[in-house]
Each structure stands twice: as structure tokens, then as C-alpha cells.
Design a protein around this nucleic acid. Structure first.
Lengths: 236, 236
DNA sequence: AAAATACAAGTTGTATACAGAAAAGAATCG
DNA sequence: CGATTCTTTTCTGTATACAACTTGTATTTT
């Protein structure tokens, strides 16, 4: 078979995207051209073209005469994210409700099936990727070339933020995830019905849920230990 | 001097951007790698990297085993554009009013100076580029990484749409352009005052002006000639 | 001993040569 | 004469070799 080169390039691309979305490659990580060349049986020329493209989509940052690096998440990221996300996502879902085709709706339902499966049995990575696929499908539906660049950029960090803040296992988290799943179902229904207003409202709800979850993680309940009494130390 | 390679790459990039924004390279035009290589004294390797980057920013479309081509403007473009632009631009100006630094405001004023100069003496291309520079400066001010990809994509087609629809010389057009210039001044004032609401309102006004202008061009006043009488033909 | 400079190793950027895919043209067949 | 297939040409994609730059280390100088 001749999946030589052309498909190995696609493989590399997919590998990098998944690794970045799941934080296997953490923000700020330097990428080694030589090493990746070996691993994927590609010369540096096509590899560097992949880098350029991923940089354009927001996965990587390129600096001249320095190695490519996974795009950073700074301390202002969350703020910027939650400023932009409700607006862009609301617009995307509104347009999706207007324009979705039968095929696209079926794709969306498939993605939601996969998301539910990942909720029950999958890892945090599987969940993040399935969720990413779901939202990406809504972007496809919107069909507006001017919205998609920002929307796709948001989805990258949506996945990464999710991997960061949804890790800790807790009853609360599980509850939130099934709430998210229910919202997905409602989004599908609104799109199928062509109900723009409902879709836009659901977008807002969906992001608010994310924000609440992150607030809980960033500002956890304080440890309930009176002053002057040191935390229990384990016996040697 | 050693502006070898590194700066020639930047030159090529700038050349392509300007040519595309001003429609010197029309939507759908095929780009010849060999020819551009010669013209800019670059080998095909860095040239193709530039292509990849410009494709990421929305200037070009890449198709495998076919030449790179200037990104198309379809008949749905205008609709998509005016759906997305007021929202994104409103958000950008709102954030600009929040976050603009002294330096950025000075840059914006410089851009507006250049725009006014282009209005009086410059060509349509100069006007489009100066206007592009002005709006790009507002994008810089907003400082939100998630908004900029779509905003920049909008600016590309804003310039191209402007080149298409503002060409015909008429009193009406000139009037609209000075109105646009006045709006620019008001935008600067709103940003300098940190007045978010005013900035957002001005964004809406600014796009409405564009839309009106395009409507006039697309749906001109009908020729006022009674049926059966052919239009006046010039004497040879 | 601290700082500065020079050197060396490793990595990024570019050019060229080659392999593979479309497109254009020539020859053959109906 | 028209259509189709095969050949030739042209252009895109990849690999390799080389040049330029960064960085870490060692040496020299004050």
C-alpha cells in the first residue's frame, strides 16, 4: 500500500492535534523536528509545513530560529476565553439551527453517542476528544467562514481547559458532566427543530456550566483546620 | 547588507498580502511557485512555507497536488460577512475601549492620519490599505487571542469588498468615505475615553454604512430610459 | 574568582535534486 | 473527422545536503 508520505503527513497532523488537545503535549512544550521526523518517517520539509499549518490554526507558536512550541495558556487565557466563547458559540449555534443539513445532524448525533460512551467508560482524554468532536460538528453546521477561525481556536483551548479542570474525580464533577450531556441533547433538538433562540440560549447555559465548574476548581472549599494545629503528619 | 532570505521572505509575504487585499491578485487566481521563486530570489521551500502560513490566515486556499490559489469570494460571502462582522467588530471595539494602551492609541491615530491622506490624494488601493491598517490596529488593542482569528479573516474580505464596491466615482461615494473618516475619528475618541458602549455603537454604525454603500452598488437606480428608445450613442 | 570572549555542538532555515501526479499534446482507432 | 489512449511535459511534493544561527562550555583576561 502506498500510504507513503501523504497519509503519514496526515497521521502526524492528527497525532499532534490529539496530543495537544489532551495535554499529552503541554502548553509551552518545545517540539523536536529531528525526533518527529524519525518517528513518522518524514523528512523535515513536510514536517515543517505541518508545523506552519498547525500554527495557523492556533495549536502551535512559531518563533524564528527557535523550535516550534505548543501554544501557551497564560493567566489571562481563562478571562479571554469566557469573554469570547459565549458570543462566538451563541452565534455558531444560532446559525447551525438555521443551516444544518440532514447529514450534518446525523454526524452530530453520532458525536453525541460517542460522547455518552466516553462518559461512562472512557478516560478524561476520550471525553475531551469526544466533546471536541461534538462542538466541531456544530461549527461545521454554521457554515460561516468568518466565524469558524475563532470558533476553532476556542475549541482548542476548550479541550485543554476541560482536561485541566475536569480531572479531579468527584460526585459533583460527574453530575456536571451528565448535565453537559443533557445540554448536548437539547442542542441537537433545538438544531433539528430549527429553533434559533433556543439554540442560542443553550449555548449560554453550556458555557455557564463550564464556568461554574472551573470556579469550583480554582476556588475550592477551604481546608477545615483550626489555626495553631498543624495538619496530621504520618508516623515514620 | 544581509537582508538575504529572511527579509525577502517577509517581502514576499507582504507583497502577497497587499496584492490580495487590493485585488491585484483576484480571488481564485492560481499562484505560480516557480515564477515567484525567481522574482523574490527564494527557493521553493521557504516560498511554500509562506503559502502555508497565508492559507492559515485566510489569504490563500491550498489543494493537494494543485497550485495554491487566492481564496475565493462566493455569492454567499457578502451575507456571511455582514452576519459576522457587526458582532465580531462590536466585540473588538468594546474590548479595545477597555484595554487600549497609550502606544496603541498613537498607532491608531497615525493610521487614521494615513487614511485621511489617502482619501484626498490616494488611489482606491491606498484607501483600502490605509483603512485595513486602521482596523487592524483596533484588533491589536482588543488583545483577545480568541477573537483575532475571525477578526483578521473579516478584515481581509473587508478590504476586498471595499475594492469591489467603492470603485465607481460618484459624489455619493465621496460623501460616504468622509462619513467613514468621521466615524474613525469618533472611534478613536471613544477608545481614548474608555467608553465601551459608544465604541460598540460606532462599530454597528460603521458596518451599516458599509452595507448601505454596497446595497447602492448592487441595486443601482434604474436607467431612466423609456422603452423602445435606445440609449444615446456617441458620434464617431 | 568573576566576567567576557571564543569556540564547539546542536538546531533551525534554505537550496537543490529527485520522485510522483496532473495537464497538455500526439498518435491511434472507430 | 471525432474520440480515446498513450506519451511528453509541466508542476507539485519530498528528501537530502548545506548554510546560518543559538546556546552551552571552556578558555582567557582583568
Amino acid at each position: 500500500m502506498k500510504d507513503d508520505a501523504k497519509s503519514r503527513k496526515a497521521e502526524l497532523m492528527e497525532h499532534l492535534k490529539v496530543s495537544i488537545l489532551t495535554l499529552r503535549l503541554q502548553p509551552g512544550t518545545d517540539l523536536d523536528e529531528a525526533h518527529l521526523s524519525d518517528d513518522f518517517g518524514l523528512s523535515r520539509t513536510p514536517l515543517r509545513e505541518v508545523f506552519r499549518q498547525l500554527a495557523g490554526e492556533g495549536y502551535l507558536d512559531l518563533r524564528t530560529n527557535r523550535s516550534a512550541r505548543v501554544s501557551e495558556m497564560s493567566y489571562t487565557t481563562l478571562r479571554d476565553f469566557f469573554l469570547a466563547a459565549p458570543m462566538v458559540y451563541g452565534a455558531v449555534l444560532r446559525l447551525a439551527a438555521q443551516n444544518a443539513t440532514r447529514t450534518q445532524i446525523n454526524d452530530l448525533k453520532d458525536a453525541q453517542q460517542a460522547f455518552k460512551a466516553a462518559l461512562q467508560s472512557g478516560s478524561a482524554e476520550d471525553r475531551a476528544l469526544a466533546n471536541n468532536r461534538f462542538h466541531d460538528a456544530t461549527g461545521e453546521m454554521s457554515g460561516n467562514v468568518y466565524l469558524r477561525p475563532s470558533f476553532n481556536r476556542l475549541l482548542i483551548d476548550h479541550a485543554r481547559i476541560g482536561m485541566t479542570f475536569y480531572k479531579p474525580q468527584s460526585a459533583h464533577k460527574t453530575e456536571n458532566l451528565s448535565e453537559a450531556s443533557r445540554q448536548h441533547d437539547a442542542i441537537i433538538a433545538a438544531i433539528e427543530a430549527g429553533d434559533e433562540a433556543a439554540a442560542a440560549q443553550l449555548a449560554e447555559d453550556h458555557w455557564n456550566l463550564s464556568r461554574d465548574q472551573i470556579e469550583l476548581f480554582v476556588m475550592p472549599a477551604a481546608l477545615d483546620i483550626p489555626m495553631g494545629i498543624p495538619p496530621l503528619s504520618k508516623p515514620a
